[in-house]
């Protein structure tokens, strides 16, 4: 089953408002998503929150595709209590690009963006507290990148802090 176009009022409103910054509105397995330009994400989140009742940001996450020029795909999953509907906003960014933070729109984005930074090394511009959250502060490397093998570790950190050669 391939993705089918997502039709209705909401994608029409989005397209009308944001024009060519939205490259695709589709439905896959009954789940709606829009592929947008990275700069447009925050205005779209704001628009959806204020004008379409998408007041609950469920999750922010990323996926790494090391062979693409725009290496990371960022996902914003939104839910609307009033409409009982979910929407996914998807955008692609290159390594080193700093997408804007969503903390001003949804406070929940704070820890979620920190986690994306921790795991993928995507810095969010304007984030109030851009630090690692799950890994130790001085850890080097971003574990969820595809070129980070599952048994890899920061040897220096492990030696200094745990006094052992390897955690494996």
């Amino acid at each position: 089953m391939a993705a089918t176009p997502w039709e209705g009022e909401l994608p029409a409103a989005l397209k009308q408002r944001f024009g060519d910054q939205i490259s695709e509105c589709s439905t896959y397995l009954g789940q709606n998503f829009a592929v947008v330009k990275a700069e447009a994400v925050i205005p779209i989140l704001e628009f959806l929150k204020l004008e379409a009742d998408f007041d609950y940001l469920v999750d922010i996450t990323a996926v790494d595709y090391p062979n693409r020029t725009e290496r990371f795909e960022l996902f914003y999953i939104l839910y609307s209590f009033a409409r009982n509907e979910r929407v996914r906003i998807k955008t692609a960014i290159a390594d080193g690009y700093k997408p804007g933070t969503a903390t001003a729109v949804h406070s929940v984005a704070n820890w979620l963006e920190r986690e994306v930074f921790d795991m993928f090394g995507v810095q969010f511009a304007g984030h109030p507290d851009m630090r690692r959250i799950l890994m130790p502060e001085e850890w080097e490397g971003f574990p969820l990148r595809k070129d980070y093998s599952i048994i890899k570790q920061d040897d220096r950190w492990v030696k200094e802090n745990l006094g052992i050669e390897s955690g494996q």
Binding site: M119, L134, M135, P143, Y148, I150
Partner: peptide, 15 residues
């Protein structure tokens, strides 16, 4: 301060 119990479940899932 969290992460003391981080086991990388998401990474394990990919493998």
């Amino acid at each position: 301060v969290i992460g003391y119990l981080h086991r990388g479940v998401e990474k394990i899932g990919e493998n």
